[in-house]
Design a protein around this nucleic acid. Structure first.
Length: 554
RNA sequence: GGCCCCUUGGUCAAGCGGUUAAGACAUCGCCCUUUCACGGCGGAGACAUGGGUUCGAUUCCCGUAGGGGUCACCA
């Protein structure tokens, strides 16, 4: 009885690995093309960190005319969530980051290197596990979980390194005959890797991002096939990324310490070792301590949060790219209108330590992104958002499309467009007063700032309404008239003169403007008042002035 | 605890032995012939710490402190 017999007994139906090697040949890609992947578990939750990894992986692949694929790692049945794959696929789609290959719906996939869902790859893992057993590089382990716990307790008590290795690897040297007998007797077992490593030897590894990292060799006989017949992450990683011909493993740096194991696995399986790029996680400041953005504690950890808030996807991508390569910011300034895919992304320029998530900066980018859009784009994007998250706004927009476009066009499209909206969630509050239904039929809290006497307010508003307001005036005329009005009520015509001798007047033209602004909009801060009045139109302006005058009469 | 990694202003970060130590966000002031949002100009603000090496260390080496990661039949 030899290894071959043992392997045949355990996996009688497994194919030869040559079959798969042939089925999934080296990819025919241009020189220097990089193949990357995003390989999440379908837990139904997409973390920004995951999006970040996917963005980096995809950017690198695109830049080199390589391939970016989506593989679903669902080997842990306990964590399985319904429609988990759909959530991931849709999130990537939302961000315009659909993969070249891999899962495209819950069950469908595209590409020649599939299946792209690990639970569908069982027979492949079995073939490679069988191969390893035949070579004497893997073996069945009959230790029960109680036994393992007991072992661990002993190790801890003796203060030695825990794990299944060396003398603790109880079944590592079990004679083949005995193993076969146990299996035939129906004893439970799993498959372990027979590690050739020694803890007292060091290996050198060069990570694309982290640089040179030295580790002790792995000497743990880790599990490669679990009791449920599915592989562990480590084994699946080696088999899948080899067969899918991944050139660069871009993943979270929590995997860095597994590199010695992975390197060993690739070697023992006879695979070409890929390049590794371990990305630092996005952190959050929690009472002076840095910690990873947490799914449970931080709403902004969920990709869905950005969608709900209406932060443009481009803003999120730009922010993430900015964390990834700080030169992005300079590039963006030099090329404000270029597509982000034209940016020359450098994997090895990524930071070795994790960046603190900065919502303020993200929103600042959001402002810029939105400011560059046309009124039509703002309308389309915000309406799409509103349909899902703000019914009132959606209705308002749909019932007043032309008028809404005018509002959104205020101070837009010129050299210095407005930058007051950072996310769709803020939009309604910024423009709601422009709609007569929302303004005229509602109780408004008027606060005229410096001018507070009722009679004076009424006087100003009446004068404007009766004498100075002409909707057809051009901007200069319009403005001159407000100055005339200021003069007529005894206010300074020019702010500068007023500032020189403030005691000479009760206020200046700006204070008069504020009275008009508040009467027309209910607010002290608004975009350009001339444009607002043009958009409102004559009747609305008059109605609003009257409403304000009446209010003072109460 | 073992092993591994990290440490430049509030935040993201350039920098690779000699620099007035960039830039962006945030913050403060002034200007932008009326507010706000922009935009412009300017200000304040940093090399964790102790030893080396060196003519010279933010940069190289060692220690200390702080932070992070990892030690599953989870990924």
């Amino acid at each position: 009885m030899n290894y071959k017999d043992l392997a045949d007994l355990i996996f009688p139906n497994a194919k030869e690995i040559a079959y798969y090697e042939e089925k999934y040949p080296e990819r025919n890609l241009p020189e220097g093309a990089v193949v990357t992947r995003f390989a999440p578990s379908p837990t139904g939750f997409v973390h920004v960190g995951g999006l970040y990894q996917a963005l980096v992986a995809r950017t690198v692949a695109k830049k080199t005319e390589g391939v970016f694929f989506l593989r679903v790692e669902d080997t842990d049945q306990k964590r399985e969530v319904e429609n988990g794959v759909t959530g991931i696929v849709n999130s990537l789609k939302d961000f315009d980051m659909a993969p070249d290959e891999g899962m495209v719906t819950e069950i469908d996939e595209i590409g020649n290197y599939g299946p792209y869902k690990q639970s569908s790859r069982k027979e492949i893992y079995e073939a490679y596990a069988k191969y390893l057993i035949e070579q004497g590089k893997a073996y069945p382990c009959f230790a029960s979980s109680e036994e393992l716990e007991e072992m661990r307790a002993k190790q801890e008590a003796a203060k030695i390194r825990p794990g299944y290795y060396g003398v603790w690897a109880k079944y590592r040297n079990l004679p083949v005959d005995e193993a076969i007998e146990k299996i035939k007797n129906g004893e439970d077992y799993i498959i372990r890797f027979r590690s050739p490593g020694r803890e007292d030897r060091k290996i050198k590894h060069k990570d694309v991002i982290k640089g040179n990292v030295d580790f002790p060799e792995n000497d743990q006989d880790i599990v490669i096939i679990k009791a449920d017949g599915l592989p562990t992450y480590h084994f699946a990683h080696a088999v899948d990324d080899h067969l899918m011909r991944t050139t660069h493993i871009i993943r979270s740096d929590e995997w860095l310490s597994s590199v010695p194991l992975h390197l060993q696995l690739f070697q023992e399986l006879g695979f070409k070792v890929p390049k590794y790029a371990h990305i630092s996680p996005i952190m959050k400041n929690d009472n002076g301590n840095k910690r990873k953005l947490s799914k449970r504690k931080d709403p902004e950890a969920a990709v869905s949060y950005y969608k709900e808030e209406g932060i443009p996807t481009d803003a999120v991508k730009e922010y993430l790219l900015n964390i990834a390569n700080s030169t992005f910011e300079n590039w963006r300034r030099a090329n404000p209108d270029k597509n982000i895919e034209e940016f020359d992304f450098q994997l090895n320029k990524m930071s070795v330590s994790g960046a603190l998530f900065d919502m303020v900066k993200l929103l600042d980018i959001g402002k810029t992104v939105i400011s560059k859009m046309t009124a039509e784009q703002v309308y389309a994007k915000s309406l799409e958002w509103a349909k899902e998250y703000d019914e009132e706004l959606a209705t308002l927009f749909e019932n007043n499309k032309e008028y809404s476009l005018k509002i959104l066009g205020i101070e837009r499209g010129n050299a210095k467009p407005r930058k007051d909206i950072s996310k769709w969630h803020d939009l309604k509050n910024a423009i709601i007063y422009m709609y007569d239904n929302e303004f005229l039929n509602r109780e408004i809290q008027y606060d005229y700032a410096k001018v507070s006497r009722k009679e004076e307010i009424v006087k100003i508003l009446n004068l404007y309404k009766e004498k100075y307001f002409h909707i057809a005036d051009d901007k200069q005329t319009w403005f001159d008239k407000i100055k005339d009005l200021a003069e007529e009520v005894g206010f300074a015509r020019e702010v500068k003169e007023y500032k020189k001798e403030p005691e000479k007047w009760p206020g200046h033209v700006g204070d008069i403007s504020t009275v008009l602004r508040v009467a027309l909009t209910g607010r002290q801060n608004t975009p350009d008042m001339y444009e607002i009045m043009q958009v409102l139109g004559k009747d609305s302006v008059i109605a609003r002035l009257e409403k304000a005058i009446q209010n003072e009469g109460k």
